[in-house]
């Protein structure tokens, strides 16, 4: 399927899902669905740098929070419309990824990983000290009273927007994977030195993929302040975003765009169930344990396992 056809299919499916789910009367569905979709975007975005290029980003929460706090800042400044917030949050997070990548991607991959983890701590400190966006107390964001498209509540709109953004993230990831860029990234992942020697502009490709990945993470965060009408630093910078966005691609499979999608839907749904039935601390423990189990026992994830089975059948 060509990229254009895939994009058309993805957006039509997303729209159809958005319209169809308006029939659901249970409010909880939208809350849970929003969270799962958020993880779909984060996991897909993480995989662009992590899965395709082989560079680990531990700072998903930082980029997510950049998106969320751009929304808060724009809301406090002049109550910008949602579309403006989404675009600016994406851009700011992309710029942050560009800067971090420019400084650290020229060194060994592990430095990028450590710097991304440290970035989350520093941005957290920065936001806590920044009174304009509420500081440590957090910020309240009022949902507009009138919801467009005749939807009954604002969460319906946020959910539908998140669906479209998830479709966009998947389209971008798939297009990247199948382009010259994607082949360059795969070459870097498999052997960076050999790639450099064969004329792949490794640094430029790495920085570009870091920027794209971080921009998409920021995009996922832009609607977050509207989700609960309230953000505070420790929920926006929660380590669970970082863990989930690594665990989901690893569990689903990192080689193609479909792996993070499977991982996010599976793990996201399981988490929603555990959160309701048991508790949120146990829920995080399960994610961590699954991450360690998969990475040690099934390093290629669910898709890797499916692939291996299919190959065995052919022979």
């Amino acid at each position: 399927m060509s990229n254009k056809a895939f994009a058309a299919v993805a957006f039509v499916v997303a729209l159809a899902l958005a319209v169809a789910s308006q029939l659901i009367t249970n409010e909880y569905f939208f809350t849970a669905g929003y969270t799962v979709l958020l993880f779909v975007i984060l996991a897909t975005a993480w995989n662009i740098l992590g899965g395709y290029t082989g560079y680990v980003n531990f700072g998903s929460a930082a980029f997510f929070a950049i998106g969320a706090y751009t929304t808060v800042a724009l809301y406090n400044a002049f109550k910008a419309p949602l579309a403006v917030m989404i675009v600016s949050g994406t851009l700011v997070a992309g710029l942050a990824g560009l800067g971090l990548g420019y400084l650290t991607l020229r060194l060994r991959g592990v430095f990028f990983a450590i710097a991304s983890l440290a970035l989350a701590v520093v941005l957290y400190v920065f936001v806590v000290n920044w009174d304009f966006v509420g500081g440590a107390r957090g910020a309240y964001i009022l949902q507009p009273r009138e919801v467009p498209f005749g939807m009954p509540r604002y969460i319906h709109l946020i959910y539908s927007v998140q669906l479209l953004m998830a479709a966009l993230a998947l389209v971008v990831a798939r297009a990247t994977e199948r382009s010259t860029l994607g082949r360059g990234l795969a070459a870097i992942r498999d052997d960076e030195l050999a790639a450099e020697c064969s004329g792949v502009p490794t640094l430029r490709l790495k920085i570009f993929s870091a920027m794209m990945s971080c921009a998409l993470m920021g995009m996922a965060g832009t609607t977050f302040p509207y989700y609960l009408s309230y953000v505070e630093p420790s929920s926006a910078f929660s380590l669970s975003y970082a863990v989930n966005s690594i665990a989901m691609p690893l569990i689903g499979g990192m080689m193609s765009w479909i792996g993070p999608l499977i991982g996010a839907v599976l793990l996201g749904t399981v988490q929603q169930l555990v959160q309701v039935t048991v508790s949120s601390a146990w829920n995080l423990l399960i994610v961590g344990a699954l991450l360690v189990l998969f990475v040690t026992l099934a390093p290629n994830g669910i898709m890797g396992w499916v692939e291996a089975r299919r190959r065995r059948k052919e022979h």
């Binding site: 531990f58 970082a242 690594i246 961590g288 360690v292 390093p299």
Partner: peptide
């Protein structure tokens, strides 16, 4: 994967 492993241990 080694990095992810240690990250998981940290989290657990």
């Amino acid at each position: 994967r080694g990095l992810a492993f240690f990250f998981g241990i940290l989290f657990i």
